[in-house]
């Protein structure tokens, strides 16, 4: 029956209809009946069960006192939130998260420079450079962080051996000293973030019409001026996208931190991020209520920062 319905409803193409993306769509979407249910039913069911229901559960849990040893959770109102905001660790978790985010954001302008060098017209070895800069993005953070841990080692790590060789007398024990530890993790995060940025920016650069540069050369603009007045303005949509993604990624710092600053590490308690605080509460201390409250705070912070960035973009992003 549905098949008959599908056939019966075929509509004539309506030329000139414009799709939501602004692209001209030749004809209208086709067919009805039960087919859409067959095509999206399972997916939407999964989305309901594994995304919408969990976020509702998270909100409910954040208002409950959960018991590690079984027993029904008790409704406690906003007690978990009050406990969170009076927790002295929250301040340091926010500070660490922000520091990490700011440092990996430096990767965006850095990547703009790298990508525009790689994409210079006629440069040899483009694809090799692209590949090399991209490698860290592929690496399992957990695995490659083990290398960095050795490089950061206070006694025999290459970093301190280098620093001593150039005359620094007492280089810090990077990953076991609070303060230095988060910096070490951030630099690792910066290194790991370049690859994705470069790929996105490279494809943004390829979309810039070459004629613009040729016209600018004829007018006598030098390479640096071309970069400033053509490349950067026309890349702003990609730069904006990366700024948003990097910020959101930074706020969700967990993998790099968990990989480098393990549980026995003396610097660990002072080096938590918001997400590692969340993990600690919900899955190490079995305080799901507290963890759920932290998750809501993370959500709120990400939302606020994203909204601010979207408002701010009007001032500097050029959509052609």
């Amino acid at each position: 029956m549905s098949e008959a319905g599908a056939r019966g409803s075929v509509t004539a193409p309506s030329p000139g209809s414009v799709g939501p993306s602004g692209r001209r769509r030749r004809g209208s979407p086709t067919s009805v009946g039960a087919w859409p249910v067959a095509f999206i039913g399972l997916l939407m069911l999964g989305v309901a069960v594994f995304y919408y229901w969990p976020i509702v559960k998270n909100i409910i849990t954040s208002l409950q006192q959960t018991n590690a040893f079984g027993g029904d959770p008790q409704f406690v109102g906003f007690a978990n939130y009050r406990a969170l905001f009076s927790d002295p660790d929250l301040g340091s978790a926010i500070g660490n998260t922000l520091l990490y985010t700011v440092i990996i954001l430096v990767g965006v302008p850095l990547s703009v420079i790298i990508a525009s060098m790689i994409e210079l017209p006629g440069l040899r070895g483009k694809s090799i450079y692209r590949m090399i800069y991209f490698l860290p993005y592929l690496a399992m953070p957990m695995a490659v962080a083990q290398v960095w841990k050795i490089v950061y080692n206070g006694d025999f790590g290459l970093l301190n051996q280098f620093l001593k060789a150039v005359g620094v007398h007492n280089p810090p024990y990077w990953i076991v000293t609070p303060g230095w530890a988060i910096l070490a993790v951030s630099i690792f995060g910066l290194w790991a973030s370049i690859g994705f940025n470069v790929i996105i920016l490279s494809s943004g650069l390829k979309a810039i019409p070459r004629e613009l540069y040729e016209a600018a050369s004829i007018d006598g603009a030098t390479g640096v001026r071309q970069f400033r007045w053509i490349t950067v303005p026309l890349l702003t949509p990609s730069i904006f996208f990366l700024t948003i993604m990097t910020t959101i990624g930074g706020f969700q710092l967990f993998d790099a931190l968990f990989a480098m600053i393990g549980r026995g590490n003396p610097a660990e308690p002072k080096t938590r991020s918001l997400v590692s605080m969340f993990y600690q509460q919900a899955f190490v201390n079995s305080d799901q209520g507290g963890g759920a409250a932290t998750a809501i705070v993370i959500l709120a912070m990400v939302a606020i920062v994203t909204v601010i960035q979207f408002i701010g973009q009007k001032k500097w992003v050029n959509y052609v």
């Binding site: 939407m44 989305v47 995304y51 969990p54 559960k57 997400v275 998750a295 993370i298 959500l299």
Partner: peptide, 21 residues
Amino acid sequence: GVLLAILMVPGQSYLIGQYQV
């Protein structure tokens, strides 16, 4: 829209609920 909305929410906010499910 309902589908895309889940992209706006950071993963941790689903995690406890997903764990319970």
